[in-house]
Design a protein around this nucleic acid. Structure first.
Lengths: 357, 357
DNA sequence: AAATATAATGCAACCGATTGTGTAAAGAAA
DNA sequence: TTTCTTTACACAATCGGTTGCATTATATTT
C-alpha cells in the first residue's frame, strides 16, 4: 500500500535549492537574485531567472511568510458578501491588492459579534499583513482588534467604523450625507419628512440621522420622533411595513428619507400600492445608489456611495502603511495612527423626489 | 536607531515551544494534544489545552502549511465580484468553508484570460488546498489549470465550465433552462421569440441558446437567425439597443428571451419607451432572478438560479474530496474525477410574460 | 518475577525561503 | 607589490508546527 502511494506521489515542486544545485550557487544567492537584490551581479540575476523560468519554479509563499512572520495577504472582514455595496467594496479591495501583488482573504460575520471575534482570530492565525473590516451590526466592543494594533498590523475600518479606535478609517461623511438627503427633500417642498434608520449603534446610521435632524432644525421644521423609525435590517419588507404605518398616520409625512435603497424601494412599493403619487404625495430618497435605484419606476433618488473607491482606498492604506514600515523600519506608529479618510457622496436626484419637473 | 527599534518590537507570539517548556513536555506532544491525537492521554490533552488557552496561544497556520505543503485555504477565481450572482456564489462558498474550518482567498479575472492565468498561478503559489473557478469570458484554453490536477489539488468549475476537463463541475442545466424559458413564452402565446445571448464560447450561453432553438422547433416555430443576437457584455445598454433593433423590424418579435436579467431589463425599458405593452405586445423573460427582477415594473419573469447553493456545493466538493484523500491516502484519483452536479432552475413567472391574467 | 503487549511521550528531521554575517575575489589606491 | 575597498557570493541559523520512529512507562499475561 505504501509502495503504491509512493509511486503515485506527484512530483515535487521546484525549489530554490534545485536552482542552486543546477547553477552551483548558494540558495541565498538564488533568493536574492530573484528579488533583484543589489548585491547580486546582473549576470547572475539573469542566469538565475532564466533557470527559474525553465525549471518552472514557483515560489512557496508559505515558506517566505513563515520566515518573515508575515504574508502578503490582506484579510477582509465584512458582514455579508452578497450585497451590492459590500461586493463592490471587496471588488475595489481585490483590484488594488492584486495590482500591488497582494492577495485577499475574505470572511463574513453575518452581522454576528461572536463570528466577528472568531474570524478576526482566524485572520490573525493566517498572519495576514493587514486587515480591512466593516463592523457587524451587533458589535459594541471592538477590543478583539487590539491584537492587530499591538502586532503593528495595519487595520482599516471601512464604512461601519468604531467610535474610539486609533486606526485608519475610510468612510463617507454620513452626517453631511444625511443632511444633504434631507435638505434635498426640503428643497422639493417637503414639510414633514420621515426617516427610516438602521441600528443607531452603528455610526453610519446614527450620523445620517443626526444630519437629518439638523437639516430639519435648520429649516425650522419640527422633529417628530414618531416619524423616526429604527428598522433593524433595513429590508424591503421592513421599508414597506414602516411606510405603511406612516401612511396610516392622521398627519402622514410628505417625504421619506430611508437609510438605504432597499428600504426606500419598500417605501415606493407601499406608496404605489396605496395609490399615492410619487413624488407629489410622498417624495422618497434612499441611500447607496444601488443598481435598483436607477431601474425602479419611478427612479429612486438616493445618495451615491463610492463603494469601489472605498475598497481601493482601504487597500491602499494598508499597502502604503506596509511600504513605509519597510522603508523606515523603526516607524512603529503603534496605537497612534488615527487617520480618517472621507470620501464624497452626492445626491442623485431622480423622479422619486423631483416635485417640479 | 537599531536600539530603539529593538525596544519597540512587539512581543513574540506564543508558540508550542513555549507551552512545551512550561509543561516540561515535548513540542510533538503539544502539537498532538492540541489536535486530540489518540496517542496522547486525556489528562495531558486537558493540561495542554488549558495552558494554551491561558497563554493565549494562536497556531501559526503558515508553519503548519509549510510542513504539510498544504493550507486550509480554498482559492476562488471568478470574473467579477460585484455582480449579484457571483457575490452570492462567493457568499455560499465562504459560509460552507468557514463552517469546515477553511478560509477563502478571492481573486477576480475581470473576464481577462491573461489575468485568469496569472491568478491561477498566484493561487497555486499560495498553496491553496483547492480551487473553485468560473471561467473568464475570454478563456478558450484551460491548460493553466492542469497543474492543479497534476498536484492532486481538487478543482471545481462552477457555472461557466470548460467542455473538456476532468474535474468537478457544478452548474445548472443551461440547456433545459433555456428550453423552459422559451417554452414558457410559447405557452403564453408567443409565436416569434427573439433571443439575446452572451458569448457562445461559454457553455452557459450556448446551452441556453440550444434549449431555445429546440423549444421553438418542438413547437414548430421557425428559427429566425436575425432574432438571435450575440451581446458581448449582456449589459443594460446592450439589451436596450438590441431590443430596439428588434422593434424596428418589419416583422418584430412578440417575445424576448434574454440570457440575463440585466439585458432583459434593458429590453423592458426599450419597450416601455416605445409605448409597447408588456406583455401584450412583447413578452420578456430574463435569466438569474437578480433582485431587480422582482422590483422592476412590470415584474420580470426569469429563470431562478441557486447561486448561494452553487457556492455551497462547490465548497463541499473540495472539502469532501480532501477528507476522502485523508482517509484513503493512496486515493489519487488523479485526472479521473469527472463529476458533474446539476442544480435546479425554475421559471419564475412575473408580469413581464404572463399574458392571461 | 519475567516476558510481552500497549499506552504515552520524546527526539530530531523536515518543509522552503530569508537574511545577518563571514569570506573570497576583483579592483583601486598607495 | 601591498593594502584597502568594493563586489559577489556562501554559510548557516531561523521561522513554528508536524510526523516517523525511538524510547520509556505502565499494564497485562504467563
Amino acid at each position: 500500500m505504501l509502495n503504491i502511494n509512493r509511486f503515485m506521489q506527484e512530483k515535487k515542486d521546484v525549489t530554490i535549492y534545485d536552482i542552486a544545485e543546477r547553477l552551483s550557487l548558494a540558495t541565498s544567492t538564488i533568493s536574492r537574485a530573484l528579488k533583484d537584490h543589489p548585491s547580486i551581479s546582473d549576470k547572475t540575476i539573469k542566469k538565475v531567472k532564466k533557470a527559474a523560468e525553465e525549471m518552472g519554479f514557483r515560489p512557496n509563499t508559505l515558506a517566505a511568510g513563515l520566515r518573515g512572520n508575515q504574508t502578503k495577504i490582506i484579510g477582509v472582514l465584512v458582514t455579508r458578501i452578497n450585497r451590492p455595496f459590500i461586493s463592490s467594496l471587496i471588488s475595489g479591495i481585490e483590484e488594488t491588492a492584486q495590482k500591488a501583488g497582494y492577495s485577499v482573504m475574505i470572511t463574513q460575520s453575518h452581522d454576528s459579534y461572536t463570528d466577528e471575534v472568531n474570524l478576526s482570530k482566524a485572520l490573525y492565525d493566517s498572519r495576514v499583513c493587514g486587515i480591512i473590516c466593516s463592523l457587524a451590526m451587533e458589535t459594541r466592543d471592538t477590543s478583539h482588534f487590539q491584537k492587530f494594533i499591538e502586532k503593528n498590523i495595519p487595520l482599516v475600518f471601512v464604512d461601519r467604523v468604531p467610535k474610539d479606535f486609533n486606526t485608519y478609517r475610510v468612510m463617507i461623511d454620513n452626517y453631511s450625507a444625511g443632511y444633504k438627503a434631507t435638505k434635498h427633500l426640503i428643497e422639493q417642498g417637503c414639510k414633514r419628512i420621515a426617516h427610516i434608520t438602521g441600528s443607531l449603534h452603528r455610526n453610519t446610521y446614527s450620523e445620517r440621522k443626526r444630519g437629518y435632524v439638523d437639516a430639519l432644525l435648520e429649516s425650522n421644521l419640527p422633529v417628530d420622533e414618531s416619524l423616526i423609525v429604527d428598522s433593524s435590517g433595513l429590508t424591503f419588507e421592513e421599508g414597506e411595513m414602516i411606510s405603511n404605518t406612516f401612511f396610516d398616520f392622521p398627519n402622514p409625512p410628505d417625504g421619506i428619507f430611508a437609510s438605504n435603497d432597499t428600504a426606500a424601494v419598500g417605501a415606493i412599493q407601499a406608496a404605489k400600492k396605496r395609490g399615492l403619487k410619487i413624488p407629489q404625495d410622498i417624495a422618497i430618497i434612499g441611500f447607496n445608489d444601488d443598481p435598483i435605484a436607477s431601474i425602479i419606476d419611478p427612479g429612486l433618488s438616493t445618495i451615491s456611495h463610492p463603494a469601489v473607491k472605498m475598497g481601493q482606498t482601504s487597500a491602499k492604506k494598508i499597502i502604503n502603511h506596509l511600504k513605509s514600515l519597510r522603508n523606515n523600519a523603526n516607524a512603529s506608529n503603534k496605537d497612534n495612527i488615527t487617520e480618517v479618510t472621507f470620501l464624497n457622496t452626492e445626491v442623485v436626484a431622480r423622479e422619486s423626489s423631483k416635485k417640479e419637473l
